[in-house]
Nucleic acid binder design. Structure first.
Lengths: 196, 196
DNA sequence: TTGCCTAGTTGGCACTGCCAACATTATTCG
DNA sequence: CGAATAATGTTGGCAGTGCCAACTAGGCAA
C-alpha cells in the first residue's frame, strides 16, 4: 500500500489502459483483490483519479479485463506444459495447479461470477482454455478445432478447478494433514464417465 | 434495495446478532454479495448504522459468520440426502449441487478465501461437512468419527465443488450446449485414485 | 439506591466508485 | 497548413462505505 512507486509522466500517458492492467496484476498478487481500487491504481500510474474511466467503463469491467488476461496467462502455461509426448494431461494438471498457487488472487478473480455478467468478448481466453483442455483430452493438437467431448472435459475441469480452489482458499481444515496437492493435480485426469 | 421492510423496535433489540445473519442471507440471495453492507442491514433491522459492531467486530467477521451458517445449512441438506440405502453418495452429490444453485451468492461466499483468514471457530460446519462426506464414502454412519480416507474425499469434494462453481459462476461458455449438470453431479463420486 | 455492564446512538473521518464540466493534446481532413 | 474534432486527462463533488470515539439508555446485581 505504501512502498509502491508512483510514476510521473506527460499529460498523455501513452498506454494507460495496458499499464493499469499490469499494475492491477501486481496489486492483486501483493495485496489481494479487496485492496484493489481504481483510484490507487491511478495514483500508482501517476495519473488523476478518474483517468482510468477513459479506458474502462467501470470497475467491474476493469476486473473482467484482468480476469481475461489471467486466462491468457494460464492458457500460455498450459500450452507450454502440454508438449508432445504422452502424459501431457497430467502435466497440464500440475501446471494448472502451479498457476493458481502462484497467482491465487488472480485465479479467484478468474473464477468469480464476474465473467458471468460480461459479454463474450471478455471470455475469449477462458474459452480457449476450455477448448485446449478438451482437445488435449481427445488427443487433438489443433487448437482451433471445436471440442469433441465436452462432458468429460467439464468433469475434468471441475476436478482441477475445485482442487485448486480448495487449496488456495484454505478450505481444507488446517489442523489435518494436508493432502499431496501436486499428486492430486497430476492424477486429476481420470475420466469419471469412462469408469461408471 | 428499496422494497425491503424496515423494522421498528425497542432500544434493546433483543437478538440483533441473529437477526443480522437472517437479513444477510436474504440480501445475499436477492442482491448478491457486492450489495451487502452492514449499514444497510442495520437500517433494515431498524437500528443505527453502527449497532452491528456490537455483535461483529468487523464486516469480514460478519461475512465469515454467514459462511459458517451456510455450511450448517449445507450439512443439513447433505445429511438429509444421505438416508440409509446404497447410492447415498450420488444423492448427496445432487443435493450439494441443488444447494449451491439455490443459494449461489452464499455458496460463493462459503468458498471464498474468507475462512482462510479466520480462526477455526468459524470453520465448525465446514469441517463437519467434510467429515460427513468422508464418512459416507467409507460407509461409516457415525458422524463423530474422524475421517479415514482424506485423499479420496478431497478428490471427490474437489470435483463437486468445482462443478458447482463452474455452473453458478457461468464459467462454462454460454454459447455451447450446457452439460447435464445434474447427471454430472450424481456421478461425481467415482474415485480417481481407485482407477489409476 | 447505586453503580456497572451491555447494547445502541450520534458525529465524523478517510476512503471508494463514478458523474459533470472543463482542459489539453493528437489526429484527421478541407 | 490550419481548424475542427476526437481522444485522453484534470478538478470538484456527491453518495455511499467501513469503522472509530464519545456519549447514552436500560437491565441487573450488590
Amino acid at each position: 500500500m505504501s512502498d509502491i512507486k508512483i510514476e510521473k509522466n506527460a499529460y498523455h500517458h501513452g498506454n494507460l489502459g495496458a499499464r493499469l492492467i499490469e499494475l492491477g496484476l501486481e496489486v492483486l498478487e501483493i495485496e489481494g483483490a479487496e485492496a484493489l481500487s481504481l483510484r490507487e491504481l491511478a495514483k500508482m500510474a501517476g495519473v488523476s483519479k478518474t483517468a482510468p474511466y477513459r479506458h474502462f467503463e467501470n470497475k467491474e469491467i476493469f476486473l473482467a479485463s484482468l480476469a481475461d488476461e489471467g486466462f491468457r496467462l494460464l492458457y500460455k502455461d498450459l500450452l507450454n506444459a502440454r508438449g508432445n509426448e504422452p502424459g501431457s494431461i497430467g502435466r497440464m494438471g500440475k501446471a494448472y495447479m502451479a498457476f493458481a498457487v502462484s497467482h491465487p488472487a488472480l485465479y479467484r478473480l478468474m473464477s468469480s461470477s464476474l465473467l458471468n455478467r460480461m459479454p463474450d468478448s471478455f471470455k475469449v481466453w477462458a474459452r480457449k482454455t476450455l477448448v485446449l483442455l478438451s482437445n488435449t483430452l481427445d488427443g487433438v493438437q489443433n487448437d482451433e478445432n471445436l471440442p469433441l467431448n465436452l462432458h468429460d472435459t467439464t468433469a475434468i475441469w471441475a476436478y482441477i478447478h475445485g482442487l485448486v480452489l480448495i487449496r488456495i482458499d484454505g478450505l481444507y481444515p488446517q489442523d489435518l494433514n494436508q493432502p499431496d496437492w501436486e499428486q492430486l493435480a497430476g492424477t486429476a485426469f481420470v475420466l469419471p464417465s469412462k469408469t461408471s
